[in-house]
C-alpha cells in the first residue's frame, strides 16, 4: 500500500545526564509512522516509551540521530517553531489528564484554539462539536475537580482533537481509569481515528489498550524489540 509517512525516526539515541554519568533511554531507534495509524509503544517502565513520545511531540529532542515529524526535523526547531508544531498539528493526552484546574471543561477544550487566534464564534462551534463527540456537552461549565476520571480523560481527548491535529500522542491514557471507562475512551479515540483519519500513537502497557491497536511497537531497554502489525490496512 502506498501510505504517507508522517513521522520518520532515524538512528535516534537519547541520553540523559544522571549524576556524573549518563543514562541511555533510547538506543539507535529507526521507525516510521504512517498517516492514520492507530499504533502504540509498548514496554515495561524505563523502556523509553514516554521519551520517544516526548521527542515525537517536540517536547524533547534527540541526543543523536533525527526525528522528522510532518517534515520538520525536531532537533532543528526553535522553541517557537516547536510550539507552533504542537499547537497546530499535535494533540496530547496525558495519563493524569493535565486539565487546567481553574478553567471549565469548555475553557479547557477552547484553550488550544485561543492560541490559534480562531474567531470566537468559530471557536465556540468547534468546542461544542468536540464536546459532543466525547459526550460531554452537558458538562461544559463544570470545573475539572467535579469530573470523574473517565470524564476528565474525555475532556482531555476533546482538547486534543478540537484543533483537528494530524497526530495525537496519548501517554498511558487508561492508566488511571477503570475497565469500563478505559474501553469507553478507547472506543472514542478509535472512532476518531477512523472518521477523521487522525494518527494516534500510544504509550502503554495496558492490555485493554493493546487490544485496540493496529500496530504495536515493543520497546525494551531503549531499543525496538518487535514491530508487530495487527491490522494490515496500516502495514508499512
Amino acid at each position: 500500500m502506498n501510505q504517507e509517512t508522517i513521522i520518520k525516526i532515524n538512528n535516534l539515541t537519547k541520553r540523559f545526564p544522571v549524576g556524573e554519568g549518563e543514562f541511555t533511554a533510547l538506543k539507535n531507534i529507526n521507525l516510521e509512522f504512517f498517516k492514520g495509524e492507530f499504533s502504540g509503544l509498548v514496554g515495561p517502565s524505563g523502556s523509553g516509551k514516554t521519551t520517544l513520545l516526548n521527542i515525537i511531540g517536540s517536547l524533547d529532542s534527540p541526543t543523536e540521530g533525527e526525528a522528522i515529524v510532518l517534515g520538520k526535523q525536531i532537533s532543528k526547531l526553535s522553541h517557537k517553531e516547536s510550539a507552533l508544531l504542537r499547537n497546530k498539528h499535535i494533540g496530547f493526552i496525558f495519563q493524569v489528564y493535565n486539565l487546567l484546574p481553574v478553567y471549565t471543561v469548555f475553557e479547557n477544550v477552547e484553550f488550544a484554539l485561543l492560541l490559534q487566534n480562531i474567531p470566537s464564534e468559530k471557536r465556540k462551534k468547534m468546542v461544542n462539536d468536540a464536546l459532543e463527540w466525547v459526550g460531554l456537552s452537558s458538562m461544559a461549565n463544570k470545573k475539572p475537580d467535579k469530573l470523574s476520571g473517565g470524564e476528565g480523560q474525555r475532556v482531555a481527548i476533546a482538547r486534543a482533537m478540537v484543533k483537528n491535529p494530524e497526530i495525537i500522542i496519548a501517554d498511558e491514557p487508561s492508566a488511571n481509569l477503570d475497565a469500563a471507562n478505559a474501553h469507553a475512551i478507547l472506543k472514542t479515540m478509535k472512532q476518531m481515528n477512523k472518521e477523521l483519519g487522525t494518527t494516534f500513537i500510544f504509550s502503554t502497557h495496558d492490555e485493554k489498550v493493546m487490544g485496540y491497536l493496529d500496530r504495536i511497537i515493543h520497546l525494551r531497554d531503549g531499543m525496538v524489540e518487535e514491530d508487530e502489525i495487527i491490522n494490515v490496512n496500516h502495514a508499512p
Partner: peptide
C-alpha cells in the same frame, strides 16, 4: 509546574 508543562504541550512558547 505541571500546568506550565501543559501550557507548553498545548502549544504555548516558553516566553508566552
Amino acid at each position: 509546574q505541571k500546568e506550565i508543562g501543559t501550557y507548553i504541550a498545548l502549544g504555548m512558547t516558553r516566553s508566552q
